[in-house]
Nucleic acid binder design. Sequence first.
RNA 1: GGGCGCGUAGCUCAGUUGGUUAGAGCGCUUGCUUGACAUGCAAGAGGUCACAGAUUCGAGUUCUGUCGUGCCCA
Length: 1009
Amino acid sequence: MPTTSKTDLATLPSAYDHHAAQAKWYPFWEEKGYFHADPAPVLKGDKKPYSVVIPPPNVTGALHLGHALNNTLQDILCRRKRMEGYEVLWMPGTDHAGIATQAVVERRLLQEEKLSRHDLGREGLIDRIWQWKEQYEKRITGQLKQLGCSCDWQRQRFTLDDQCARAVRETFFKLFSDGKVYRGKRLVNWDTFLQTAVSDDEVFHEEVKGHFWSFHYPVVDPKAGEPTHVTIATTRPETMLGDTAVAVHPDPAGQLDKVEAELKEKLAAAPAKERPPIVAQIEALAERRKTHLPKLLQLRDMAKRGVQLTLPLAERTLPLIADEWAKPELGSGCVKITPAHDANDYEVYQRNESIGTINIMQPDGKLNDSVPEKYRGLTMPQARKAVIADLTEAGFHDPESDVEDRLIDLAHSDRSKTPIEPYLADQWFVKMDVLAQSAMDAVTSGDVSIVPERYGKSYLDWLGEKRDWPVGRQLWWGHRIPVWRKDGAKSVCLLDDSEAQKVEKDGFTHDEEVLDTWFSSALWPFSTMGWPDQTDLLKAFYPTSVLVTSRDIITLWVARMVLMGKYLLDEIPFPEVYIHPKILDGFGETMSKSKGNGVDPLDVIDQFGADALRFGIAYLTTETQDVRLPVEFVCPHCQGTINQTKQNRVQPRIVCSHCDKPFSTQWAEKDEDLALPRGPVTSERFELGRNFCNKLWNASRFALGNLQDYKPRAIGPDELRIEDRWLLSRLATVTGEVSTSLDEYRFADAARALYDFAWNEFCSFYLEMTKARFAQAGPDKQVAQAVLADALDTLLRLLHPMAPFLTEEVWQLLAEVAPLRGLTAAVEGTESICVAPWPVSDAAAIDPTIEEQFAKFQAVLGAVREVRQGLGIPSKESLNFAVDCDEETENLIKPMQPYFTQMAKANAVELGPDSALSEFSSIKSISGFNTPITVHVGVKAFIKIEAEKARLAKEQANLTKFTGALRGKLGNEKFVANAPAEVVEGEKAKLAEAETQLAAVAAALAKLG
RNA sequence: GGGCGCGUAGCUCAGUUGGUUAGAGCGCUUGCUUGACAUGCAAGAGGUCACAGAUUCGAGUUCUGUCGUGCCCA
């Protein structure tokens, strides 16, 4: 709370106390209601709206640094816009994440209580998942608050709450009524352990050792001269029981020509050393024409004629068909087709529907009644053994010659870690043709722009396929599909449960399935605002202003929000999508809880502070690169750090390599491990942010101390000294840079501009220089105080979005010593920096001449310091120096004399053309101003002849090389003729400057002998 | 296989439309108990800008190819 009594500045700690600031200011902001958005002023036209919906974190687990980055960036945007006077709505909430959450809870249930979901039943399991959700939602909310996020917590939503459920139901009803929902067959990724379909992004691929078996199917009634059997090969022999065709290419000769032409093209382009293998391939292809082509042509003709093959073991026949999926250049050239259990084969079926599909699997992964009795009830591995044995015995397979080893890329379920079975199932689909097109149009027309632009391509490519969206999931956790079905009757979709009882009396049953999580997420930008009701919130804040997210859900989420917004509200959900980088660990892997490399933002916040984390994140958020963050454990005993490795990141306990004491990690489960203190995981990258915050804290302490007797008064322009004007000029420039950078989502540029300004200009120069002015009361001190108060005020406001707690803490302290500030008119600071006006760059203050002149002063100061350090002259020894320079430079430097004394303990005893010292001096030339400046530093007894000679010789060598290069350039007629005149003139000036310096160095060397 | 990135100092990264002798933080070396700050101050060492070509008076920056690496899609 803002204190009513004045703080004793002497008691302020010498290091920024982030714990205290965070504990104090977040509750204050919430109590004041700064984060609560009010639609009224927007609807009245008094304020412009700015709204953002949070990408809802899923309630499966706690947030990691990736989320911290996502939310920090949103908060920076929101806080900045709030300061600019917009009515800001940042809508928070969480996602129910269907399968992920159900899987986590089920796994836990099995581990801890040895219960399956069937033991609890649908209602029981859902109850348990709600409990889990409550726990994690609370944790996530807490994390976001610790991070300082300025969300409108009074409006927090959950994708499965009543309001979102209503939007989901309304949407499904509309889709159903419009005929955009249908039920169809589709090959899904079946998890036989969880007995549900999983989406493509819940599948991971892993290579496993397997085999490639060949066997043959007899031809039914071959004509004379025709093959009597067809050879096919497969990695999954057991699926032959579900075969419905064998395919041969419709134009094997043409296909071979095509492949050969491609190989030749590749050969022509290949470097010599890569040619032999390509030549070998071409030769093999030629050989294949002789050995295989005649037979393939025969088979192709037989396929056209409608020849049947006998399917061994299954006592049925299947057709030989012509289809391009068969590759004449590979294997036998023929391929078996199992549409119900292979994605490619299913596509063949779609082109040749007459072959039909046969599903041979039950939901539990065992063979069903479509296969001969002896195989029924076998698991896939069991069936594989039996099929091979039986084929061998029947003479269709020779285990000696017809099998080879092969690595197989096998899909696994991310949820159960068991192999996926492709499985043909009835599914609910949403027709995507029109909807996808509308979402594509939104981006191609520019109504929605994606930043950086390149991500627009993956968005358009994906939507361009217009694949229908399978929306059903065989789960219990989610929005239940509002459809009631009855055999032989038309299904009904009900908007209201009151009608359900009626239809159920008529024998209709409620569909068991729930909707894909992304179905509810797609409605998020407006379901959270009360749609389908036309609420004030929706009227004021929809469409939102920007969506901030990471690239992996552009297709799953962003595209679907766009098409749903257009479909339901006839308006895009946001005009801009900003795609930010991802956080990777030191090995370049994305962070995840399951991998063990996830970092809890609270660990970082505890150690370095929320401001440090946020500033560090902004500093790292560049446009093109992901953020690589080497991660380390911090020993709770000795605070030593231990680098995280792929080995130790999954261990429940680690022994500290510094103090040999053990500590526990997030994997600790056994009591003996849990009893140990936990070692947090952080990254030393955030030291940058912490150090910066501390620097700013101390600069503020210094400023506050020197403002104790500050009295606001208007400062005339002629009262400003050169360093005042310089600082105000730089501040105006930086203000402009920060605003522009944030407008363009260049967070790193904004952070770097502020870091450099605050540290290297405000602290290192302005504060150092004003020390002398504060030492003596008078008008000069008053001017310095006014400039200091104004500059600090502006700097705090610029930094507030990135470092909210620190800036608020200082803002409140500044209000105590300088409640009124401003150079021309005294303005009272706002009660919180959250609602202080965002700085506007004062173009009139920008003075490039002052900035360049000041740079000369800095360069001379640097030269003196360099000589002192180079010769090891103790800092308490006072030095004299002279500056040989033109009159303009002389006039500039003259008034800075006190600052040389103060900042380098050196006296400028002579300035201007041909200045030098009578005492023995070391020289240092300064380049870059297109006028020679040479500094002569009197070095008294400290000269080390040999070291000085070496230093000068090195400088001479550099200058000789440089002048040589410049002469060469200027001697090049083409350069002089083609380069712009100002470039040529610049090079000439540089040469003149360097030659003067070279002469000075040579003279100094000669003097040393 | 297709698409999109990335490869710059020991590490993590900046480097606008081609035009100073390529920068920062960390780490390293040297010196500082200097009245805001050792989470600091001053200075220093450290780079064939992955490689090979091309365009240009001029390339870290543009183009082509190669290698390495990562992500997405199939």
